[in-house]
Amino acid sequence: MKEIFMLIVCLSFFLFPVNTAPAFCNQLNFNQKNITISAIENDYIHSLIKDIVRTAYKRLGIKVNFFELPARRSLEWANIGRTDADLARIDNTETKYSNLIKIPVPLLTIKGVVFTKNITRDVHKWEDLSGLSIGIRSGIRYSVIRIEGFNRIIAKDLFHLFSLLSRDRIDVAVADYDMGRYKIAKHFHDSGIHIIGKPLSSRHLYHYIHKKNKNISKKLELVLRDMSKSGEMDIFREKAAMEAMP
């Protein structure tokens, strides 16, 4: 009996994918029609996730507007409720930004790797960066946290970061592996910037909603989890990566 019920649900899900969300929303008495999600401007990672999140909300019957902001502002505004959610952040963000509710479905995994132009040091951990001038991107919390006490320079964005590195203003730059590669490929492919060592960190990115939208958190989690399980997320990410690549 149980299997039959599950089968019906799954079939229903697949057979009536478009119509389920509104019906679901109606069932949950969810009256939100539009939602604004802050996202990091010109951010490659976020661009990979946008379609995933948009689709998930769409399935809940909610139209999503992305509001691109600097990385921290995106988070701050989501926290203070000025936007309804932040597109994607690492784990434990809610401990500092207590107004945010994590949707515990990983949307993407970022790997913090070290880019350099001239440094040949074999880097396996953060301490290996000691003595170097380290560039990080503003608003990228994990890198900011880990290199506290180091000789660091915070760039306003990734282009800025790699510009500093390409002009030897910094020794190394810590950035996301995918995003770094994307940026180098796009703007600095002849600069000699390359990755050294192993990733210093590997962190999942989660969608965070403001607590005022708590009522949709569970539904959103269900939808996202379903998208993750179904491999739909990977499809969206690859599609986005392909579009972003120069």
Binding site: P70, A71, R72, R73
Partner: peptide, 8 residues
């Protein structure tokens, strides 16, 4: 401030 660039 928009970018929360503390150093700047």
């Amino acid at each position: 401030v928009w970018m929360y660039d503390d150093i700047q």
